[in-house]
Amino acid sequence: MALITISGFPSSGKSRRAHQIKAHLESRMQEPSYSGPRLKVSIISDDELNIDRSVYGDGRLEKPARAALFTAMQRRMGQDTILVVDTMNYIKGFRYQMYCAAREMKVRVCTVYVVATPDDCKEWNASRDDGKQYPPDILDNLIHRYEEPSSMVRWDSPLLTVPWTDDDVPVDDIWKAVTEGTVKPPNAGTQAVPKAPTDALRTLENTATAMVSAIMAEQAASQLSGGPITLALSPTLRPRITLPPRNVTLSELQRLKRQFVTVHKKAITLGTIEKGQVDWSEESVADKFAAYVEGNLRP
Rank of each mutant, 00 (worst) to 15 (best):
S15H: 06
Q20M: 15
I21S: 06
H24V: 05
E26C: 08
R28T: 00
Q30Y: 01
S35Y: 00
R38V: 05
L39H: 09
K40G: 00
I43C: 09
S45H: 09
D47C: 00
D47V: 08
L49C: 02
Y56H: 12
Y56Q: 09
D58P: 07
G59Q: 13
L61I: 00
L61H: 10
M73A: 14
R75E: 12
M88V: 08
I91S: 13
C100Y: 04
V112Q: 04
V114G: 02
V115Y: 07
D119W: 13
S127F: 08
D130T: 08
P136E: 13
H144T: 02
S150V: 00
W155M: 03
D156R: 04
L160E: 04
V162P: 01
P163E: 11
V169T: 12
I174Q: 03
K176P: 00
K176V: 03
T179V: 00
T182L: 12
A196K: 02
P197M: 11
R202T: 14
T203L: 10
E205K: 11
N206Y: 05
T207E: 04
A208L: 07
M211W: 08
S213C: 07
S213P: 00
A217D: 11
A221D: 08
S225A: 08
G227P: 02
I241A: 04
T242E: 14
R246L: 07
Q254F: 04
R255I: 03
K257Y: 06
F260P: 01
F260D: 03
V261M: 07
T269Y: 09
G271L: 07
E282P: 01
L297T: 04
R298L: 11
